[in-house]
Design a protein around this nucleic acid. Structure first.
Lengths: 210, 210, 210, 210
DNA sequence: GATGAATGAGTATTCATTCAT
DNA sequence: GATGAATGAATACTCATTCAT
């Protein structure tokens, strides 16, 4: 029976998504024609529409894809022993995601998605969720850190979370445009920021715990 | 033929730019038709093309407009007595720009511009300059602060500048999508970040304060 | 390979024709997709093409089907004792066909077929034959009636036949569109029409016979 | 000012409608491409869409056009002295319309419209109105004739009206398909039909009643 | 200067048909 | 025999831009 196997089907789907990703990354959603995607995918017009209902569906599928991948990144905190370690792990993972050359197309499409989110409800929902997820994780970490006396209590955990996220968003932008964006240096600065939110007397606290 | 006065001419230009801003803010560059802009401007197709060569020209003009307005914001540092005061003034000005309800359209168009900058050289140049300008200002301030012993020296001034800019970029995004983005709290956190980069030696600080 | 039995084969064919009839009745030939027919038939695309070479083939098969069914209607005259009785039987049979709720789809498809006959030779041939057949029957009846002095001789038998057929065609149209088409009353009027073509003076007829 | 004159505008509109009529007459609504109409009209795609919102709009405009023309036909009854004269005038006018070689395209499109009326509400409304109008006219004439003792009273005026209309609908069909449709003869038969509905001799009637 | 009618290449999407399995 | 995934030409419609008036 010519009913294609689920594996084959999924593979075709990915083939199309990859083609779309490449095209969208290059030209943006609205300057990319379906013909571009079709050509790049190596399939036919009809085949693409067999897997995705419309161009918008394709855009939304990529948004969801991104969302799903980011969810994985956030899970890195699970293995952390203490809040600070978790925070650093999270920052590290995102830093790596930011640096990965293979992720460039995804980052660029992400930016187009940020713009698209202003118009497209579905995309916005996906993007906002993609922020709320790490935000919740960070807030939990910081609140625990504040409770443990590791972090200053005069700044809201939510604001810190938003700031950290904002920084990475800005990094994505600057890196995607710029030729000379020094991530290493910026990550040092990010560590500095986190450090800045810590309580200043380490010795006192350590003692407290012991 | 009655050659139009320069004043009238400039007024017409603004009229079109405002119409374009409103349309682009609502639908993005590529989902906005020239017909929308023409209708909103109250002029005719021909008239619009009398002032702008093409739709792209219009997009680029808005990018330049944005760039010009931001240049003004940066100049606030000029009046500052010391680096820290300058930095705070700058942050304050950008915070205000971020909060101004009248600027919402401009912020939204700005985001579309960030995406467009990935494709369009001219737009990218304008956007990058719009970052390099405040970056240079911030770097100058911080280097002076570091030299004066007010700021830690273990983080590069450029990285700090980029971080501050990135934060504001992220804020623009989060605010433009979000319904419950608490700017006040975030600005407190930003102050915290700046504070974190200052030198911690009590004696030094005490002296400065006194 | 298990060659399907002729019975099964014919049953499948009918299954497809019924699905096509339902779809065409609802949406017309050109607004109905093969996918609609496939779905409604419960078979697969391939299976449908195993029984019919193309969509046009399907349309033509339905036209022929209609033609065959109408041929049966016309045979009702065979059992008639005299021309007038035959004519009334024919009118009665067509009236019943017109009224039958189960035949609505067929009547609607018939109308689409009338339009299609303007373009499609095969369909036109089938439709025209579907007219010529009852026409020949009616002409025969009327000529006999005229010869027997039962019908006026000043109107050509062929014209009367065409008129009667035309009336039923119009009825199909009006009934298929209309909400308040009173067939009973119209059939009374049809009887009146036939009555109007009969010779009125009994003595005249007697003379003819003698 | 390049705002086109109403006359020019109407002329363009007609130009397109004529092209559409010719194309639809040849191939039917759904087998005619906009490209065909565009080419035949001698205008551009954009121009056609400047005058008609969509292909459906074009179809509906033609339906309305037909409706309007038929309304004119019906008005011949106005000048009639007595009901019978009116009826004959009406039949004559429709017979002429049926015969006119220049009207062939319109008749063919009319048939396509009858099929389309099964699906398209707007078209159906136009078609039904196109029937109800002459029907009302005929009913009025016949009721007056019946009241004046010129027509038999045993058949409903509405049924007679429907029969007459049905006959012409059938004629349009038969003529549009057929090569040897003798209209002259049929019109004689139509006269016969009308004659059949007349009271034969005033005295006879009285007797019948008694 | 100003208008808006006209252009026509470009767009996303559909669908009758085929054929590898 | 039967399946349904795949094809790709065809479709209706749009829109940035021009230019006769």
């Amino acid at each position: 029976m010519p009913k294609i196997s689920d594996q084959k089907r999924e593979s075709r789907r990915q083939q199309i998504l990859e083609a779309a990703l490449a095209c969208f990354s290059k030209d943006g959603f609205h300057q990319t024609g379906m013909a571009d995607i079709v050509k790049r995918s190596g399939l036919s017009h009809g085949a693409v529409y067999l897997y995705f209902q419309s161009k918008d569906d394709l855009i939304e599928a990529l948004a969801d894809d991104r969302h799903r991948r980011e969810a994985v990144l956030n899970s890195v905190v699970q293995g952390a022993r203490d809040p600070l370690e978790g925070l650093r792990a999270l920052v590290g993972v995102y830093a790596q995601w930011l640096t990965d050359p293979a992720g460039e197309a995804r980052r660029r499409v992400g930016i187009h998605g940020w713009a698209e989110a202003l118009r497209n409800r579905r995309v916005r929902a996906s993007v906002v969720e993609g922020i709320d997820m790490p935000r919740a994780v960070i807030v939990a970490l910081i609140e625990r850190a504040q409770h443990d006396g590791l972090f200053k209590r005069d700044v809201s955990a939510d604001a810190i979370a938003r700031i950290l996220i904002a920084m990475f968003q800005g990094f994505v932008l600057q890196k995607s445009w710029g030729e000379d964006f020094d991530i290493e240096a910026c990550m040092v600065a990010v560590d500095g920021v986190i450090e800045g939110f810590r309580t200043t007397k380490p010795d006192v606290r350590r003692r407290t715990r012991t």
